[in-house]
Design a protein around this nucleic acid. Structure first.
Length: 193
DNA sequence: TATTTGATTCTT
DNA sequence: AGAATCAAATAT
């Protein structure tokens, strides 16, 4: 049984961590069971200057965990109904995180989309600030299968972010995976005025 | 204190 | 194209 990824894994540049997370296994202990899913889609949110990052408004009650040490969960509610799971990266004092957007159950089913993913694994705000080097929620090493390729695109649902952030290709995913979100317009198919 | 807005998903 | 649904940010 693989161990949880160490804190050093998360204490790296956010895009490096985002890429390294593809193929790893997200684990959540619920009761006597451990629910697992292989991560296949992520997005990077990097610092207060990133117009799409929640830390753009500075440190608040919600974003405090992003300012803390790496290797912790940042879980919040969006649109009044969906729990989003993020992994805090870089170093204490530098707010940045990776949003986990899509995964595949090891037992076969796809979990496309960040809201469906958290719902399927029973992840909610009770896990906000949870230590990923702890016993409740963690990530195990994994990798890409032979032939699997990483693709990238602009991030989804952040049209409010101004240039240049809205166009940063900080969404990374395993090409062709069923666990990828059915996010509209994979790459620049939508003309923007 | 009131209004607006989302790191989404599902139905019409 | 729009509803569902609410916490946080912004405006008043």
């Amino acid at each position: 049984m693989p161990d949880a990824l160490p804190r050093d894994f998360y204490a790296r540049p956010t895009l490096t961590v985002a890429r390294a997370l593809l193929g790893t296994v997200l684990c959540h202990r619920r009761g006597g069971d451990v629910l697992r899913a292989r991560i296949v889609e992520v997005e990077a949110y990097i610092g207060e200057r990133d117009g799409a990052c929640h830390a753009r408004a500075g440190r608040t009650g919600r974003t405090a965990v992003m300012y803390g040490p790496p290797g912790h969960a940042y879980v919040y509610l969006v649109y009044g109904m969906h729990e989003m799971l993020n992994v805090v990266t870089e170093t204490e004092g530098r707010p940045a995180a990776v949003l986990v957007r899509g995964a595949e159950r090891l037992a076969g089913g796809a979990l496309p989309g960040p809201g469906r993913l958290t719902r399927a694994l029973g992840i909610d705000r009770a896990l906000d600030a949870a230590d990923l080097c702890g016993q409740r929620l963690w990530i195990e090493a994994g990798g890409l299968a032979r032939g699997e390729r990483i693709a990238r695109s602009p991030r989804i649902g952040i049209d409010y972010a101004g240039a240049p952030w809205v166009d940063k290709p900080w969404r990374l995913f395993v090409e062709g995976s069923a666990g990828g979100s059915r996010a509209p317009r994979a790459t620049g198919t939508r003309p923007r005025g």
